[in-house]
Design a binder for these strands. Structure first.
Lengths: 343, 343
DNA sequence: TTGTAAGCGTTATCAA
DNA sequence: TTGATAACGCTTACAA
């Protein structure tokens, strides 16, 4: 049987309370007492029983992270950052995969898992603005992204529109004028696709460039194949873009691949920019310029908001806008990448 | 305050024991009693307190999954499968990222997190055979992969050598003779790289083909860039392979990219096979033939072994060999992919 | 088939 | 600065 606080107390010749005080870094313990307790702990190999502490404290020390699925690189990397940020604060993360399924997203919000965790960081993909009323306030909740808004819950937003506008402006700044956009979801009013397309259009309008339907590449799922196919469609229809804005990085990388396969040079003939700045952007050939949102910052903000809400330290729900920047790499003429054409 | 079992019992006019019986599906409860309890539960919105149950049962219901990092697609997909498999058994997964760091891997084995979880599924990357003695048997442990072996712990192995041999034989079967291997770790005796290279060499020897040092492509980290660079090196040195065996999929995809950039056609000029069969293999252009190890099966085996060990149902440590197969796709002339050359 | 009561290992209250 | 002692909410002998 594992040693308990009582065992430690007996061995050290003190009461359990004193052991508890030591374990919890309670300041008013005489150094020599602390010393004695510490060595008793070491001798017995004592380890605190988490369940007992949790029961007593009324908390589990666990937070949930609900996301579509880990096989999407963006979410895997988000999870990586959230786990790391939580660890810094002594919190343990439990991941729930909702698989872009409305029912499972609602279940993540209300289901039995909520008993196990103290709070939830939730990145929805299926729920929309019309589901605002579903958001519970009871188990502390932090929303990620721009699909649902509510002034009743904490939120970390991405400013998709501004960032997409900045991405487009970057392409304009390197002299491109016929900028294709890849990954469009026609008819959709909400979600990352719509917001980013809006930013793209704003930038073009402000630059006095007419929008050209021939430069819009539709793509349902945002994968590499979709990016390649969307570009193929644009080119096959006879359009001649001098730049491509991929609404995320995998789309951009798929687009890049298709362009290169057709003998077009990146960035000489066509510049490319992506969005999200996943790891892969640093390893593509050429390396991919992308909109960088500091995943680590987002993760840290989310964990901080959630922790404050859990401990009751939080007041009115807050909204945090994540900062972004353009990571300029070779695909738009920046440094740091191998050229796409063999030397 | 949340409702407790006592509240439910009072409302239903029964004892807590009866409520507990209902909640735990104890069979000997009169249907009408069960009915009454159920509606009391519903009325109060009662939810079981996990901490209390865990304290009493001496378990936490959590299992750990220690892996290098989620930003590596293979591990993200492994985590996805493990979480899904655990969920089927009512277990919750906590991910620990060791970052390919020896110290953190040892910490995963012994650190404080072990108090929080009932057991650990561990996929090491830094520890080697010499660390066998470090493996604890006390918190139930299931090893994944082929870096460390011990007859004291349960293990799910991948048969890297046989699988790599089969991969090479597949290339031979489509008529290739000058097969480059990419991702070699020279001098390493242990780990996936060495085991897979051994399989590659076995296949060639059995086919009566001499090993050619010019066809070995070294790569430290197994990323896309490394794969591209290794192939570049082989080609620049003047070798003319008619096939490439990427020791994992990202290496293979990097290699594919480099070949295409140089104007070589896949699979017409050079066939390519990868290893792991990550999602991306289905979306590359052309689609990538790869060694498929049924991640879901591996995950399920690991979770089963661990659960048996936790509940004490397990006897002597078991070793499970994961089955594999070659997923033939376009990169070796199979169907199901777009051709690499535009039509 | 159901009830009583004794813990599980902590933390918190209140004295000392 | 430390110690008794009562919870926290549940499961489980043991009784009834």
């Amino acid at each position: 049987m594992a040693a308990t606080m009582q065992d430690v107390a007996t061995l050290a010749g003190v009461s359990v309370k004193t052991v508890s005080n030591v374990v919890n870094d309670y300041p008013y313990v005489r150094p020599e007492t602390r010393e004695r307790v510490m060595s008793a702990i070491a001798e017995l190999g004592y380890q605190l029983n988490a369940s007992a502490r949790n029961l007593r404290r009324g908390r589990t020390g666990l937070i949930g992270l609900a996301l579509p699925m880990l096989s999407l690189p963006y979410f895997a990397e988000l999870a990586e950052s959230v786990i790391a940020a939580a660890e810094e604060r002594g919190l343990v993360v439990v991941i729930e995969q909702t698989g872009d399924d409305r029912g499972r997203e609602m279940d993540a919000l209300h289901g039995s898992r909520r008993t196990v965790t103290d709070g939830l960081i939730f990145s929805p993909l299926a729920l929309g603005p019309e589901d605002e009323h579903l958001l519970p306030t009871r188990p502390p909740l932090v929303l990620l992204g721009e699909r649902v808004f509510s002034d009743r819950v904490d939120h970390v937003t991405m400013r998709n529109t501004e960032a997409a506008k900045a991405a487009t402006e970057h392409l304009l700044s390197v002299g491109r004028r016929r900028i294709a956009v890849v990954g469009v979801h026609p008819g959709e009013k909400v979600g990352s696709a719509a917001l980013r397309v809006t930013g793209y259009e704003q930038a073009l309008r402000e630059a006095g460039i007419a929008l050209d339907p021939a430069l819009y590449g539709t793509a349902g799922p945002w994968g590499r194949a979709a990016g390649a196919q969307a570009v193929a469609q644009i080119l096959d229809a006879g359009a001649v873009p001098d730049a491509v804005f991929g609404l995320n990085d995998t789309l951009a990388i798929g687009a890049m691949h298709e362009l290169q396969t057709r003998g077009l040079r990146v960035p000489e003939d066509v510049a490319i920019i992506g969005f999200d700045d996943i790891e892969e952007a640093q390893y593509s050939a050429p390396t991919l310029t992308s909109v960088h949102f500091g995943r680590d910052d987002i993760a840290r903000s989310a964990v901080d908001l959630l922790e404050a809400r859990i401990t009751g330290a939080a007041g009115a729900p807050r909204r945090v806008d994540a900062a972004f920047q353009i990571s300029v790499r070779a695909s738009t003429g920046g440094a740091g990448g191998r050229a796409s054409a063999p030397t």
